Computed example of a mutant assay.
Amino acid sequence: MPAMIELRAFMGLADTFRERNWDNPKTVAVTGEMTGEEFLAMLDLSPDAVEVFFVNGKAFTPDLAVVTGGDRVALAPQGVPGPYRVLLGFKKMG
């Protein structure tokens, strides 16, 4: 049975959401557990466009992220400037 994920996008990915007429945050139905890469494929977003997944406030690279219903997920694009990396909590990831 599908469960919902609350999905937010930062910076340039927020522009993609607007271009697709998606809400930000967007509610996404998922069934079971998905890897970050599977989740991006379901959304038709390039893995190269996303540097960081935030799952319930914790930062992961797309290849290490795992999402499931009830999670709060945010996506940050490649190339986030240094000060924002600190504010968002993923300075040491790249």
Results as ranks from 00 to 15, higher is better:
residue 49 A to S: 13
residue 49 A to T: 05
residue 8 R to V: 01
residue 19 E to D: 12
residue 35 T to W: 13
residue 49 A to P: 00
residue 56 N to W: 14
residue 25 P to Y: 15
residue 22 W to F: 12
residue 30 V to Q: 06
residue 47 P to Q: 13
residue 24 N to D: 14
residue 19 E to V: 02
residue 50 V to A: 09
residue 11 M to W: 11
residue 11 M to V: 09
residue 34 M to G: 02
residue 45 L to Q: 04
residue 32 G to N: 15
residue 21 N to F: 07
residue 50 V to S: 08
residue 11 M to R: 06
residue 17 F to T: 04
residue 9 A to C: 05
residue 60 F to H: 14
residue 33 E to M: 12
residue 36 G to D: 02
residue 26 K to G: 07
residue 18 R to P: 01
residue 29 A to S: 11
residue 39 F to I: 00
residue 60 F to S: 00
residue 39 F to Y: 10
residue 36 G to Q: 05
residue 46 S to N: 09
residue 11 M to S: 12
residue 18 R to Q: 10
residue 25 P to M: 13
residue 58 K to G: 00
residue 28 V to I: 15
residue 52 V to C: 10
residue 16 T to E: 10
residue 34 M to D: 01
residue 59 A to E: 00
residue 25 P to T: 14
residue 56 N to A: 02
residue 16 T to A: 06
residue 40 L to F: 11
residue 41 A to D: 07
residue 12 G to K: 08
residue 8 R to F: 00
residue 56 N to D: 15
residue 47 P to L: 08
residue 55 V to P: 07
residue 34 M to T: 01
residue 14 A to R: 14
residue 16 T to R: 06
residue 51 E to K: 10
residue 42 M to Y: 04
residue 46 S to A: 14
residue 31 T to L: 12
residue 44 D to Q: 15
residue 43 L to E: 09
residue 26 K to E: 15
residue 40 L to T: 04
residue 22 W to Q: 05
residue 32 G to W: 15
residue 45 L to I: 12
residue 60 F to N: 00
residue 36 G to K: 02
residue 43 L to V: 10
residue 58 K to F: 02
residue 52 V to Q: 08
residue 10 F to Q: 03
residue 23 D to V: 07
residue 26 K to V: 13
residue 6 E to T: 13
residue 32 G to A: 15
residue 12 G to A: 12
residue 13 L to S: 06
residue 50 V to R: 04
residue 5 I to F: 12
residue 25 P to E: 13
residue 11 M to L: 12
residue 36 G to Y: 03
residue 47 P to R: 15
residue 15 D to A: 14
residue 23 D to E: 15
